[in-house]
Amino acid sequence: MSETYDVYAVQYARSQRPSRDFFMYKDPHDGPLPIFYYVWLIRNADRAIVVDMGFSAEMGKKRSREFLRCPGEGLRVLGVDPAEVETVVVTHMHYDHAGNVPLFPRATFVLQDAEMQFATGRDMRHKPMRMAFEVEDVVDLVRRNFEGRVRFVNGMEEIAPGVCVHHVGGHTRGLQAVSVETARGRLVLASDAVHFFENMTETNPFPIVADVGHMFDGYERLLRLAGDPDRLIPGHDPLVAELYPVAAGDPMIFELSKTPLRPSPLSGR
């Protein structure tokens, strides 16, 4: 019998940018929209798995993002010390997901083969392809690989009972989503396979993309995997903070394994 978990979205930063930055097909006259930055915690009595690591205050300043607090501080609110975490899933190696490697000195990092190949390969010659990567973050994970602390996967793999990673691609060549068994069914953390609910409801993808066709295919795959649109969680949507109850009395932590306070925008898709 599969284990079940509690799952949390931990916000650590936010920004407000022109809507054309978030959607491939947008009227350039549309006003600015907010974007939230999260890491995620998957936890039960036996284990704690962190999904993505966020970025640092220094990186937030460099990229003009409003840094709210260190992602590690949010994890500590939930009783998890980053220094003791043994498994970190890296959904992809963009700066806002693969920063802060030093916060996790004991962790093994779960990464798709295709993502390391992408981030260290020939595509990085081209500025538009590398713009969301930070070379030092990539090098940090290369170093952890040389230390034997990267667990490479290729496609779908169960990394713990009831927790699986799934190669989706699209946004990057090796992006992976995470499915988790919870008391309310299988939850899917889409990460940047789906930035916002609107990317799916309007079939309007985020414009940083390695393969648009794979991104559209990913929308369909993730919905099938979740089985219920209320169990698909996008990677950056501020609406997540409105749909899910606050956890641990902290206004920047949201319990995704609880029933949403109202139906997801995907419910009518």
Rank of each mutant, 00 (worst) to 15 (best):
E3T: 12
V7D: 03
V7R: 03
V7Y: 04
A9Y: 10
A9V: 01
Q11M: 15
Q11L: 09
A13T: 05
R14M: 11
R14I: 11
Q16T: 14
R17H: 13
S19T: 14
F23D: 05
M24Y: 11
Y25H: 14
G31L: 10
G31Q: 12
P32G: 05
L33N: 09
P34C: 10
Y38W: 02
A45D: 15
R47W: 10
V50T: 03
V51W: 04
G54S: 08
G54V: 01
F55A: 05
S56C: 04
S56P: 03
A57N: 15
A57H: 11
M59Y: 11
M59S: 10
M59Q: 12
S64E: 13
P71K: 00
E73L: 02
L75Y: 00
V80S: 03
V80K: 02
E84P: 07
E84A: 10
E86R: 15
E86A: 12
T87Y: 03
H92F: 07
H92A: 13
M93I: 07
M93Y: 08
M93H: 10
H94E: 11
Y95A: 08
Y95N: 05
D96E: 07
H97Y: 14
A98C: 07
L103T: 06
R106C: 09
T108I: 12
F109Y: 14
V110R: 00
V110C: 01
Q112T: 12
D123W: 11
H126G: 06
K127P: 09
P128M: 12
M129E: 14
A132T: 13
F133Q: 06
V135A: 14
D140R: 15
R144Y: 03
N145W: 12
F146E: 11
E147D: 11
G148F: 10
N154D: 14
E157P: 04
E158T: 13
E158Y: 09
V168W: 00
G170P: 10
G174L: 00
Q176K: 06
Q176A: 10
Q176M: 12
V178N: 06
V180G: 01
L187A: 04
L187W: 07
V188W: 04
A190T: 04
D192W: 00
D192Q: 00
A193N: 06
V194A: 09
H195V: 08
F197A: 07
F197W: 14
E198A: 13
N199Y: 03
M200C: 08
N204P: 01
P205T: 07
P207F: 06
I208V: 11
I208A: 14
A210M: 10
D211R: 01
G213V: 15
M215F: 03
F216A: 08
R221L: 11
R221E: 13
L222H: 08
L222V: 06
G227S: 07
D228K: 07
D230K: 00
D230F: 01
D230M: 07
L232A: 01
L232G: 05
L232I: 02
H236R: 08
H236M: 09
L239S: 00
V240L: 12
V240G: 14
A241G: 15
Y244D: 00
V246K: 13
A248T: 07
E255C: 06
E255G: 05
L256N: 04
S257F: 06
L261W: 01
G268P: 09
